[in-house]
Amino acid sequence: MKKINFIKSLLAGIFISTSFFALSHAGHGSNAPWEACADKKLNDDCTYSIHHQKATGTCQAMNEVLMCVRNQPLENIIEKATQKPGENKSESILLIKQ
């Protein structure tokens, strides 16, 4: 019985903490803009990627929580088709302005 209560308490704690997180910012359809500013300060530069596109902007307070506000056009991220085996993937990302 005690074990069940402990699990209930644990689940309740997780629920409350995740609910608080859910209500602590407005949401974007994606958490990426918030995650991009999780460890940053107001007006810091930030980037995030969605749907193979890279967004670049600065961290701004939206509903008192920092989110990455894009101020540059989205960039399409297209991997080079000619990438060689073993080649550093991050270095082979070709950025094309929309």
């Binding site: 997180f21 859910a22 209500l23 407005a26 949401g27 974007h28 359809g29 958490n31 939206m62 509903n63």
Partner: peptide
């Protein structure tokens, strides 16, 4: 202001 998407979802 931004819609509270997280709360909604």
């Amino acid at each position: 202001a931004p819609a509270p998407v997280d709360a909604i979802l």
